[in-house]
Design a protein around this nucleic acid. Structure first.
Lengths: 233, 233
DNA sequence: AACCAAAATTGACACATATCAATTCAAATC
DNA sequence: GATTTGAATTGATATGTGTCAATTTTGGTT
């Protein structure tokens, strides 16, 4: 078997890479998941899931980082969120139409488990606590989209870019200095503007000393100023 | 008891006004819902539910029409959808934090049932088919928000307004001529623009013969042209 | 019918943003 | 190391959009 499509070398039992969601499962349930999952490694840039395809499996990101985005009009995309380990990815298609409603692309080399959807649904049915946790997870994702809708439609570019950067700080890297895994294009998709505008805003932020970008690294120098820009809009 | 706060005069059994979701319930479950619901009439303009408040109940709109919107930055709002009878309103707060994440305001006189949240959750737990249907409903709502996010961020004003009007046609009134229950302000909130811009776009549409607005009525005259504007963006 | 308050309308203007074309830079490939 | 490709950058320009202020219309109230 190739290294890019293989049965997970290790069992789900004791796996530190699985989404915390699965800690709600008992031994039998986890066995079932274990027996019906596929483990795949992706290289940076590869598409993990394509919008519109049939949802045969749900995903759990074990390691790496990925962008989750909706493909919109004329090639434009809206990044909904950055997916970090260890997180579960389902989406509204699970119960609506069994399709994926977004595309997921690896930003760095990533390892993902694909869990058979019917098995997953079966386990959900049988385990109330698991179902509740799943719904909580899903609901949190929905709320971030609400939030996104508001800030993307009601703030202007500097505020939107500040929000994007603070999102990376607060939710993904948890520290002011982090690797530049997102291209300017990606940052533009994350804040709903053109690449050129993204470049200009980032240049302005650097000129004002809020930000430093160098050697594949980005560092937030003045968090408070960024938060103020976010607030002002 | 006042007419604005009363136990529903009729039982849920045989009620034609309840969301189809509840048709999945058996007699005992419906009895439980019946015994734990409150029926309230609202006049046009009244707030049915306020964003941020504790979610003690979920809602079912029996008659009337309402706008469901997120209160955003500095008094601006984003209308997520128009609520028509007979539909269920829950939202991500049910499983996340038991709060309402949007405000609902009656556009015309409306009648709403409030169902105790704990009772509702209890019934959900006990009835798998009901739970599935609920999730399907919820997921559909989420998808409309995805859709909204894309068209609000990737189209410009004429496209956004065309989408808003076609939404009213396709999803709410199902006919080209309908009462003007939405103010220009509301139409602006539905298409993420200023009131003045909404007025101008609507004027343009009328000039081009796509639309007729008169006497509290709006009529879509050239549906195809509107769809084209929607497509072009 | 007259009045008032709110909503709708308008045009002028300023600002925000996208687009375009040209250039530089960086990384990957041979 | 030379070459090539794609990404990033830049400034000029055109367009889109919001804001403001003034006016008109509408609907409701007395």
């Amino acid at each position: 078997m190739s290294e890019f499509f293989e049965k997970s070398p290790q069992s789900c039992h004791g796996c530190q890479c699985m989404s915390p969601l699965f800690s709600m499962l008992n031994k039998e349930e986890l066995d079932l998941v274990d027996a019906n999952k596929i483990h795949v490694n992706f290289k940076a840039g590869e598409t993990i899931k394509k919008q519109g395809t049939f949802m045969s499996h749900v995903l759990s990101v074990n390691s790496g980082l990925a962008k989750l985005y909706i493909e919109g009009i004329e090639g434009r995309s809206a990044i909904l969120r950055i997916v970090k380990p260890t997180s579960f990815i389902g989406g509204p298609g699970i119960y609506y139409d069994q399709r994926h409603h977004y595309t997921i692309t690896a930003l760095i080399d990533s390892s993902v488990c694909f869990i058979n959807l019917q098995v997953f649904k079966g386990v959900l049915k049988g385990n109330q606590a698991f179902a509740e946790e799943f719904l909580k997870d899903f609901s949190r994702d929905v709320l971030t989209v609400y939030n996104r809708l508001i800030y993307l439609t009601q703030k202007q570019m500097p505020g939107r870019m500040a929000d994007a950067l603070l999102y990376l700080f607060d939710e993904i890297f948890l520290q002011p200095k982090f690797p530049m895994i997102l291209s300017r294009f990606d940052l533009a998709d994350l804040s709903a503007m053109s690449r050129e505008s993204a470049v200009k805003i980032l240049r302005d932020f650097q000129k004002e000393g809020l930000l430093k970008i160098s050697d594949h690294e980005m560092e937030i120098l003045d968090e408070e100023a960024l938060r103020k820009i976010s607030r002002i809009g």
